[in-house]
Design a binder for these strands. Sequence first.
DNA 1: TCTTGACATGTCGAACTCGACATGTCACTC
DNA 2: GAGTGACATGTCGAGTTCGACATGTCAAGA
Lengths: 193, 193
Amino acid sequence: MALRYAILGLLLDRPSSGYDLAGRFADVIGAYAWDAKHSQIYPELRRLDQEGLVEVVDRGARRRTTYRCTGEGLTALRAWLMAAPTSTGGVKNEHALRLFLLGVLEPEEALEVLRQTEAGARGKVQDLEAEFAALQERTGSASGGPLGLTVQLGIHSFRATAQWARWASEQLGADADLDRSRADQCGSGSSAG
Amino acid sequence: MALRYAILGLLLDRPSSGYDLAGRFADVIGAYAWDAKHSQIYPELRRLDQEGLVEVVDRGARRRTTYRCTGEGLTALRAWLMAAPTSTGGVKNEHALRLFLLGVLEPEEALEVLRQTEAGARGKVQDLEAEFAALQERTGSASGGPLGLTVQLGIHSFRATAQWARWASEQLGADADLDRSRADQCGSGSSAG
DNA sequence: TCTTGACATGTCGAACTCGACATGTCACTC
DNA sequence: GAGTGACATGTCGAGTTCGACATGTCAAGA
C-alpha cells in the first residue's frame, strides 16, 4: 500500500504523468525512501483514478496523461500518514545490507567498498545541498519549504553515511597498516590482533 | 537474492536457528538494512542447506535446528559483496517515506510525528551505543571488531535522523509560532499568510 | 493434570515487485 | 520519406514477500 501514497505525495507536490513519476522515483525519493518502476506506476495510477484519489488534468502528445491528486486523495494520504507513525514496516535496502555485511570481506576489499561509499555519499550531499540552496532562493524561506525538509533529510542521511565510511576506513586502515608497516616504520608499542 | 546473503551474513557471525534469525532480523538489521519474516526464512534455510551454502550443526529440543555457514556459503557471500558495490537496488522504507511526505501534514501534526521520530531515533542511538561499548570490551578493540562497524553505521544513521528531526521541528515550530504568538508577543513586522 | 504461554517450525494464497518484451508517438536529420 | 532516438504507455510471467493459519514442544504454575 505504500506505493500509492508515495505517488499521491509526489502528485501533491506537482501534477505529473506516469513517465514523470518514474523519473522522480528514480531520482531523489527512490534513493532512500521508496523506489518504483513504470510497470507498477501506470497500473496504480489507473486504479487511483478509478477510486477518485487522482484525476486526469491533461492529455498531451504521445498519449501523455497528466494526473493530479484530488481532495479525496489528500484525505487518504493524510489518514495514512497519521495512522501508524511509529511502525518501521519492513525495510529493504540492498546497499545498506552490503555495508552491514562488510566485516565479511578482507580489510583491503572492504576499504575499497568504503572508499566508493564515501565518494558516492559525498557526491549526493553536494547535489542535495545545491538543490536546497535553490529551494531557499525560490521559496524565500530558510527552511526551503515542505520540500526543503525532505532534501535536508537526504543531506543528513548521506552525510552520516560518508562520515561513517570515513571512520570505518580509518579503523580498517589502522588494522591493515599495523600488519604491514610495522616492518619498515618505527613500531611504537601496540599489541597484535 | 538479497535475503539469502543477509542470512549467510548473520550465520557467519554466529550459528543460529530459523527462530533466532527471525529475532535478529526483527532486531538490528531489519531496522535499516533488510527485514524478513519466519515464513521466508525457514524455506530459504532449507534451500541453502540443499545447495551446500549452510549446514545443520545441531538439532535441539522443540525441533530447534541450528545452522552454520559453510566455506561455500562464505565464498558465495563474498562474491556477491564484491559483485556490484555501487548499485542502489530499489530501496523500500516505509518509515523514510512517511518522513519524506511530512510536508503534506499540517505543521502541528507534522511536529507530533517529528517528536516521535526524534525520540525513537535517540532511543535507538542509546541502545546501539551500549551495544558498541559492550563490543569494545568483549573484543578488546576500539573499533569493536567487524560487528562494531555495523553497529556504528546504525548509530550514525539514527543520530542523523534525530538531528534532522530536531532541525525540522525548529523550522516548523518557528513557522507555526509566528502565526500564533505574534498576538501576545511583540509583533515585529512579518507578512500574514 | 490441566492450562497457559513462549519456543519453534511449516504452509499457503494474495499481493507486490521486477525485468523483459511490446507498441506507438513525435522531433530531428539526412 | 526513411531512419534514429527520446518520449510515453501497456502487459505478462517469474520471483519475492507477507499475513494468516496450522502444528507441535516444553516449562511453570494452579
